[in-house]
Design a protein around this nucleic acid. Structure first.
Lengths: 233, 233
DNA sequence: TAAGGACTTAACAATTTCTTAATCGAATTT
DNA sequence: AAATTCGATTAAGAAATTGTTAAGTCCTTA
């Protein structure tokens, strides 16, 4: 991911902090948004879909903990990284904060250099998390073994070639969700690769052949989605 | 839910595993119970009502599969999450009873960090299952699911073709507001596309057919608006 | 280097979606 | 009341999109 594409939402009730920290982050090339309280933060987060949110704990209107909990429930933000800004020595808040779903803590006073390096490492986690998930997953009567590149459908082993596996993997990562053709190409083939218009269809065909027609639903003009039998109503 | 209130039942016949994994989980703040075989597991599960059960597959007395099936039948435990512990590379098709009702699989050797993050995500599922349906737009008895490209009217699923969905989506984005024909064309069709004068009407017709006449009100000389039943006066 | 699998492409069939055109009806204006 | 305007309705067919098959290329492996 390009650094310029990384969006950071900075939330603090002290304008001075917003300005100083914001300046430093912009200087590093990040796109920075700000908010002065929890309510604003949630609005801004929904609007800008940042990758990272730096959240002050003590704020008027809605404090950081509460804001964090609310944000964690927003689906479009499920992968956002949230770090709390706390005054040194506020031990109790750490407990509450981790429960609320925070990924990290940064203690005030904030040293710009420390902050930037911390952010870099947090964002590294963002990448590795999406790349990882190299684990097993069970959906209905289908199990996916990402280590072995194999899936099991009611105890029957089905081996899939790489592209098919990745396509299947993508679709099942969010059963029910429609993946747009464009998004599928981006994820499975990579943004640079250009393949013909029928390539996806052919792979879907193979999956339908091997796993079952009913699991893969076409949404014309949009893309495909994976549905579990009987859940399509 | 407070982290300290979360109970995990760990079942494995190797004391080493119980100790190491148990230690890590306790360290994370979970309340941990252990059992060395399926029989003990069932007893312990009934007694402690854990939120999550980590179940080794290969065990003496009663293996994990059988235990899982039995546990699934216990009413007081109907919401428990069960994850199997399996050796890496194990052929799951040989693991009879793959459909015993496990929610997930975790492969050995178990890396504490992976395990903990996995558990967090499993428990997140626990929460989200009860508080789901967060992000979707609800208007009266109609729900719009943009992820799945479907709408639900009093829980009945209605699938709409793309243009209809987009038109519907636009109108419902501000119930009561009149959208001018021109504006509709701009949004749904795009400014460049030129279509005949009756195209919008036809699409409105389809929506009325599928969703109900009363929801779509014509404002002659201007455009259309979406209204909830009985609210257009 | 022959065989086989994975992946892509191309051609055409099948299907769904969208638009058009024609006609009707209601409301409004002349 | 006649004429006009605007929307409603319908069915047909145009256009867009996907399905399917077969063949070709590339790469790996025996």
């Amino acid at each position: 991911m390009n650094k310029n594409d990384i969006k950071i939402l900075l939330v603090d009730d002290e304008p001075d902090i917003l300005e100083i920290v914001g300046y430093n982050l912009k200087n590093e090339g990040y796109e920075v948004f700000t908010a002065e309280n929890g309510l604003e933060a949630i609005k801004a987060a929904k609007k800008h879909l940042p990758h990272l949110i730096l959240l002050d704990i003590m704020m008027p209107e809605m404090d950081g903990i509460e804001a964090c909990e609310k944000i964690r429930k927003i689906k479009t933000l499920e992968n956002v990284i949230i770090a709390f800004l706390t005054a040194r020595g506020e031990d109790y808040s750490q407990v509450a904060g981790f429960e609320a779903g925070a990924d990290d803590y940064i203690t005030k006073p904030i040293k710009p250099k420390v902050l930037v390096s911390k952010i870099k490492s947090l964002l590294r986690r963002l990448k590795s998390e999406s790349a990882a998930e190299e684990d097993n997953l069970k959906i209905g009567d289908i199990m996916i073994d990402r280590d072995e590149y194999v899936i099991y459908k009611s105890n029957k082993k089905i081996e899939l070639p790489r592209k098919e596996f990745e396509l299947f993997s993508l679709l099942t990562s969010k059963p029910g969700k429609v993946f747009k053709r464009e998004a599928i190409l981006d994820t499975v083939w990579g943004n640079e690769v250009v393949v013909g218009g029928r390539t996806i269809d052919v792979h879907i065909r193979k999956l339908r052949e091997k796993i079952g027609d009913d699991y893969f639903k076409t949404v014309k003009g949009v893309g495909y989605k994976f549905v579990l039998k009987g859940q399509d109503k």
